[in-house]
Amino acid sequence: MYVAVKGGERAIENAHAWLAEERRGDTSVAELSVEQIREQLALAVNRVMAEGSLYDPDLASLAIKQARGDLIEAIFLIRAYRTTLPRFGASLPVETGKMACDRRISATFKDLPGGQVLGPTFDYTHRLLDFKLAADGEVPEAATREAVSSDVPHVTEFLNHEGLIEEAPHDDTTPPDLTREPLEMPAERALRLQALTRADEGFTLGMAYSTQRGYARNHAFVGELRIGSVPVEMEIPELGFSIEIGEVTLTECETVNQFTGSKSEPPQFTRGYGLVFGQTERKAISMALVDRALRWEELGEEDEGAPAQDAEFVLYHADNIQATGFLEHIKLPHYVDFQAELELVRKLREEAGTNSVSEAAE
């Protein structure tokens, strides 16, 4: 047994060394730096920060490098590191209405106070490979790069003036912290939104797409999608007021959804909401669609049995770290379990063979 254990340790050490060698690749090619990843693979960095629940572009870039570009592995590294950090307090809720918007669009209103700002987006690109990038070609600078920095009201406020959309909920109670407490059902909306923020982007996208294809009849308009930076403030008890401790880049999406009304509510529009670290608009839109689908009960709608309406199904299967751990554990040694299954199958086959012989003899 001792020899087997030592042999296993040597094999693992060799596997780690081989992994490091594969990670580095051809040593004649310049090594990829953390700074290059942070500046040139920003969307991957944003996803790792969002699903890792830690806003730190440098650490997310390091995790991507260490994980050889495997974003789920990088998210795992970031979450593991986050658990080691001390907590000094909690920041105040951010004011997204004061966001310095790099991008702000609406699919519901053409003319907006402050205007629509296309910003950096793939929406209007031709999806053709740019071979200039392979030749390390320089890219032209944008003519203007000014963010909309004044107070920018949300589009849904225009509908709210006429009472055409439900009031945005205001709840001053401190929501549960999913990074410190396990998910439990039934989950209130604040907890569901936390789970969706750090949910796997692909899973959330698939759930959102299912709602658009009729599995929940969730016909939505993007009321507003905005991307930009917001200040983060924290109250200091000794000072008696809050101070700004930094800023974060966020993507916020509010969807406007149809609602026929109920016994207590007149026909009006309802909301879906998504808020994610960094420029992560596909995730934010998906999150808003799934959020709205999960609200069917509180809005008095019928349960159509759609997957996106099942909070337990969505939230318990959305976390890619939990899913990866459960999935990949089956590749680890299960020798004893398999031997038990093997003996059972052999016994069943033997009994089946004996019964067949007896029946033939009769």
Rank of each mutant, 00 (worst) to 15 (best):
N160L: 03
L41P: 03
D151L: 15
A100K: 06
A199W: 04
P237K: 10
T121A: 13
V29I: 06
N257R: 01
Q279F: 10
A293F: 02
P57E: 07
I165K: 01
A284Q: 07
A42M: 10
A107P: 05
T255F: 06
T96A: 14
T27W: 06
A284H: 01
V34M: 12
K132S: 15
K347N: 08
K263I: 11
G206D: 03
E301H: 03
T324P: 01
A323F: 00
G8C: 11
D310V: 00
L43F: 12
I227N: 01
V148K: 14
G8A: 15
R127L: 06
K65I: 14
Q194S: 02
G261K: 02
A306N: 04
M1A: 10
P175M: 06
A340N: 09
E51L: 05
C101V: 07
M207W: 00
A135N: 08
I321M: 06
A195Y: 00
A4T: 08
M234W: 14
H16L: 12
Q268F: 02
A4M: 09
E235R: 13
A323W: 02
A361D: 03
I75H: 01
A360G: 07
E252D: 09
L348A: 15
F241V: 13
S53E: 15
R226H: 12
E188M: 00
E95M: 12
L164W: 15
H329F: 09
E162V: 11
S358G: 08
R79F: 08
A360T: 14
L41H: 11
L178V: 04
K283Q: 13
W18A: 11
P266S: 09
V152C: 08
I105G: 13
E350D: 15
T324H: 07
V290P: 01
A308K: 01
G246S: 13
G7T: 02
E31P: 08
R68N: 10
A60V: 05
A142C: 02
K263V: 06
K98H: 07
I321E: 05
L85F: 12
I285R: 05
E22V: 09
I245C: 07
R24H: 08
